[in-house]
Nucleic acid binder design. Structure first.
Length: 757
DNA sequence: GTAGTCACTATTTGA
DNA sequence: TAGTGACTAC
């Protein structure tokens, strides 16, 4: 990469306002960046400009919310300043702080090789505490408690402050969960003795580290980070802002801090983000310079107009006028369907038509929805029409059971105090360590305030349990030994082999089992890649790390699916509106634009939340460059019932001038397919599992009559063939209907099966 | 230990 | 409706 031509014309690529934002390097700066206004360009060129003005790359701290944004940023800085771009401290809040804590955690009572708990781990820990306090798990819903704790941490409310905070206590009282403070306290203890930090801790402990070590630590970083930048500032929470202030508010600070964001695109208040931070920023830095990027380069004028019309209905916003010089273009299309099924069909038809008429590629098109559950119907029609698509969201690779199981073994090998990992693998695969033994360990660990692993020695078990535990400890110790002397890949391979999980999956002899093994192999491939990825000598990425298993674990615990290979060649994109933030497509379909859905029924009662829904809708339509289509259905299935929803109030907020006239909302809905497609037959929903015959005809045959080779009927699984019957009268039956796992093992004495002629 | 049953719930989601 | 977690009955 040496000798790469460095662009020096980058300043010419900017408009006046953008250029000012890029070249105003000193003092506090606020950039309000409307959709499509070249925000990323400003951000990256500003960093490039800093470097070219003589600031060392490692003196720049650039915080983002997603790995993807950070990666993109670094890549784009590189095109201007070359390899030194990778010496910039650019990354997510969580990943950069995790890196620092990896070195400094011992100063605040954590081991440096602490585990990072994901949301599931936290929930599971909370659940156990609820159980140990003998509270009703129905009242004390572990998810709700976890978000409560998360919210407290994000507002710098420690357990002690929580117990004295009237607001929190009152809210808990109203929710009939008065013991929440106690759970919080125990949860914090549990994390400490497990050597674990949850996602909020990565921020909170970072704050603590700086706050409690003003001389040696805080000052060090204050001196290092001469220039601070925060992307998507409207998404920061209180705690994140407090940390930022630790870096730049102190005596004789140059106060070189630049925040970039758009209050109109703040859509994450439900996870603690607060627009108050923008107002607070103006208070904390009264000398700040503000630049508003108002020219939209992305969309044509009807789209920009409509977006403005909508957002103007919000009262709380920073005044700005988004405009475009791309006058004209296509008007907004509104599509009314009778049912959700028809909506699916009409959208798919429109996609076909657009592709033909405007020669759009699949990757130019996106379907955006408010809730992930809406994707199914569109999936069905696109599949039917043979249009490739990709659905984003849903279960990530690292949340799959088999992956979490393997990773739990790895975690335990690196940090044996990790209780969540311990619980996960202690009896998986089965090694005869049952609930009783586990409960005993858990209680004693709790009583002595140590991790489960640490208290194993001090407990009297019966001989059998004891032997099993000794074997388990031995196993983990071999993993630990391997981890010390081998690289991540070799260690991982060893753990996968010796843990017995793959053998167990193999023995299941099912398609699912095989799929899981494939996933584990994919994980191993990923680890191999990680291990062999050579570190560059020159221009080494400041964020690249060693290649041990511990490093791998840290990397993946902060990674999500969207960060992984996005080698989708040419597919339609389907995702929630939230997930689409920051992306753009030539043609966007926003579907389900109905009252109770978009805006969500959950937000109708609160004006603030309604405004957030409106911002979300604003984000949705501003993703479009040239075409936007808003669709809604008269009725749709929600929770098993047909629900009739009115068109969304947001639709009325769009001026008629920007809406395609021929498809007005008043027009009678069209039935049947548009002409271009000929006689298309509506298909039956894939989830409507039709029974092979009427239930009334069903009369189970006596178990004794059922023999190998019989065709049988099962009420739930349909028609199947008996493949074998073992000595305990368990039949293996192959059902045609169940494509995912055709073979079921069914106990004849209990199952209701009818022999068919 | 496990298949089946019951009761419950139901946005958005990054790290 | 559909997915999940807890319980139950062998």
């Amino acid at each position: 990469m040496q000798g790469k031509e460095l662009t020096s014309q980058y300043l010419d690529e900017l408009n006046d306002i953008q250029r000012k934002a890029v070249t105003t390097l000193d003092g506090p700066v606020m950039v309000i960046a409307g959709p499509g206004s070249g925000k990323t360009r400003v951000l990256t060129y500003r960093i490039a400009h800093l470097i070219r003005s003589g600031v060392a790359p490692w003196q720049i701290l650039a915080l983002t919310f997603t790995n993807k944004a950070a990666k993109e940023m670094k890549a784009r800085i590189e095109t201007v300043v070359g390899q030194s771009a990778y010496k910039v401290w650019a990354g997510t809040f969580h990943s950069l702080f995790a890196r620092i804590l990896r070195v400094e955690a011992h100063r605040i009572g954590y081991p440096n090789d602490f585990t990072i708990y994901d949301t599931d781990d936290s929930k599971s820990a909370v659940k156990e505490i609820i159980k140990s306090l003998k509270l009703d798990p129905k009242v004390y819903n572990n998810g709700a408690i976890r978000s409560r704790i998360s919210s407290a941490k994000s507002n710098l409310i420690t357990p002690r402050l929580y117990a004295a905070n009237e607001d929190y206590l009152n809210q808990d009282a109203v929710n009939r969960r008065p013991m929440t403070y106690k759970i919080y306290e125990k949860y914090v203890n549990k994390c400490i003795r497990s050597g674990a930090m949850d996602f909020d801790d990565l921020l909170l402990q970072m704050f603590k580290l700086l706050y409690q070590n003003p001389d040696n630590i805080r000052e060090k970083y204050q001196r290092q980070f001469k220039y601070l930048m925060v992307d998507e500032f409207q998404d920061t929470n209180f705690l994140q802002y407090e940390i930022l202030k630790q870096f730049c508010i102190y005596e004789n600070s140059p106060r070189n801090v630049c925040i970039v964001g758009d209050d109109a695109q703040s859509i994450y208040s439900f996870r603690g983000a607060t627009i108050e931070n923008i107002l607070q920023f103006e208070n904390d830095f009264p000398e700040l310079q503000t630049f508003k990027l108002e020219q939209n380069y992305r969309s044509t004028s009807h789209i920009v107009q409509a977006a403005n019309d909508i957002i103007n209905n919000n009262t709380r916003q920073i005044q700005k006028k988004i405009w475009t010089d791309r006058i004209g273009g296509h008007k907004i299309k509104m599509v009314k369907a009778m049912t959700e099924n028809e909506e699916g069909k009409m959208v798919a038809d429109n996609i076909v038509e657009q592709k033909n008429r405007y020669s759009l590629a699949n990757k130019d098109i996106a379907i955006l929805y408010r809730t992930n559950a809406q994707s199914r119907i569109f999936e069905e029609y696109l599949r039917r029409y043979n249009i490739p698509y990709k659905i984003y969201g849903g279960l990530s690779f690292y949340q799959r059971k088999e992956i979490k199981d393997i990773i739990a073994y790895m975690r335990l090998s690196i940090n044996s105090k990790d209780d969540e990992a311990f619980k996960r693998v202690i009896n998986y695969p089965r090694r005869g360590i049952g609930q009783t033994t586990l409960a005993k360990i858990s209680t004693i660990a709790d009583d002595n305030d140590v991790s489960m692993w640490e208290c194993l020695n001090s407990i009297d078990f019966n001989v059998r349990a004891k032997q099993k535990l000794i074997d388990f400890v031995k196993l983990i110790r071999t993993f630990q030994a391997k981890a010390v002397q081998a690289d991540a890949y070799k260690t991982a391979l060893f753990i996968v082999k010796k843990s017995g999980i793959v053998d167990l999956l193999k023995s299941e002899n099912s398609i699912e089992g095989q799929a899981r093994i494939d996933n584990i192999n994919a994980l191993l491939d990923g680890i191999q890649e990680f291990t062999e990825d050579d570190v560059l000598d020159e221009g080494e990425d400041i964020n690249k790390q060693e290649r041990t298993l511990a490093d791998f674990l840290q990397t993946i615990s902060l990674m999500t699916d969207q960060d992984k290979n996005t080698e989708n060649p040419d597919t339609i994109t389907m995702m929630s509106v939230h997930a689409a933030k920051g992306l753009e497509y030539k043609s966007v379909f926003v579907v389900g634009v109905e009252e109770n859905l978009f805006p969500s029924y959950m937000s109708l009662s609160s004006p603030d939340q309604l405004e957030e829904e409106r911002r979300l809708f604003y984000v949705a339509i501003t993703r479009a460059e040239e075409h936007i289509c808003l669709s809604f259905a008269n009725s749709r299935y929600q929770y098993g019932n047909v629900r009739y929803n009115d068109p969304s109030r947001f639709l009325e907020e769009i001026s008629n001038d920007d809406v395609e006239a021929n498809i007005s909302m008043k027009k009678k809905p069209e039935f049947g397919p548009p002409k271009i497609l000929g006689n298309f037959k509506p298909l039956k929903s894939a989830t409507q599992k039709s029974l092979p015959m009427d239930v009334g005809d069903f009369s189970p045959s006596p178990a004794a009559d059922i023999k190998v080779g019989h065709k049988i009927l099962h009420l739930k699984f349909g028609i199947g063939e008996v493949l074998s019957i073992d000595e305990r009268n368990v039949a293996t039956i192959k059902f045609d209907s169940n494509i995912d796992s055709p073979e079921k093992r069914i106990m004849l004495q209990y199952a209701r099966l009818q022999i068919m002629e």
